[in-house]
Amino acid sequence: MSFIQVRNVWQEYGDQTVLEGLRLNIEEGEFCALVGASGCGKSTFLRLLLGQERPSRGQILLDGQPLAAEPDASRGVVFQRYSVLPHLSVLDNVALGLELPRAPLLGRLFGHAKAEARAQAAALLHRVGLDHALDKYPSQLSGGMQQRLAIAQALIMKPRMLLLDEPFGALDPGIRKDMHALLLELWQETRLTVLMVTHDLSEGFTLGTRLLVFDKVRHDPQAPSAYGARITYDIPLNLDRHATREAVAALPAHVTERLKTA
């Protein structure tokens, strides 16, 4: 049985269909890159997995159980923006994840437990290269450092699934490369299941073990929102780079065109 099972999921807002008939199995430990043109439902799919929205039709199973209908500690997330809490220092941003589940009444730990949580957070921050900025506030960090912090914050929870919504979309190309390296290392260490939405096709190739292309199959010129997107290509990446390149070369021009311009 697959780790994540997506069973005929539809997402509709009023008469606007965003996703239609999504069927998908994802194994534990896979790194899926979700690509597609703007507005074709990649982020919607991520929100469904996160529990931020519920599918209009169909079902998503996690380990055979229906997915909890609200965000919880089993799923970590990094957004493009607003991923870190502006009023907490770097260290507290990460330590918060250790404090909240253990202190349902006050939301904070004291004494020995607090020191332990902070030490654990500091160790993880060291791992992502933020050990020099523990006492800074997020607004004092660069964009890349903020995303490092957001990743550390998500990982301290030891989630089973990490959801990334264009996490590096706002970063410079050089910094983006560093982030790719960091993310790959962390993924190899933790072996968690990662789903990443990206606009950047090459980013999907560099990182993913599997590429999922979202696209609309049906078009009604009179009602552009009548049909939703499906997963049109599902390409395994890590097996054979050569075969992958051929598979990508075989993608129809309109898909790759749109991805490049997006």
Binding site: L50, Q52, E70, P71, D72, A73, R75, G76, V77, F79, R81, Y82, S83, V84, L85, P86, H87, L88, L96, G97, E99, L100, P101, A103, P104, L105, L106, G107, R108, Q153, A154, M157, P159
Partner: peptide, 25 residues
């Protein structure tokens, strides 16, 4: 809303979410 979601993925319940994320801001 991203911050509220993030806090929930960090294990906050409604009360601690208000106490540690919304109120301080």
């Amino acid at each position: 809303v991203e911050l509220l979601i993030k806090a929930q993925t960090l294990g906050a319940n409604t009360w601690t979410l208000i106490l540690r994320v919304v109120l301080p801001q």
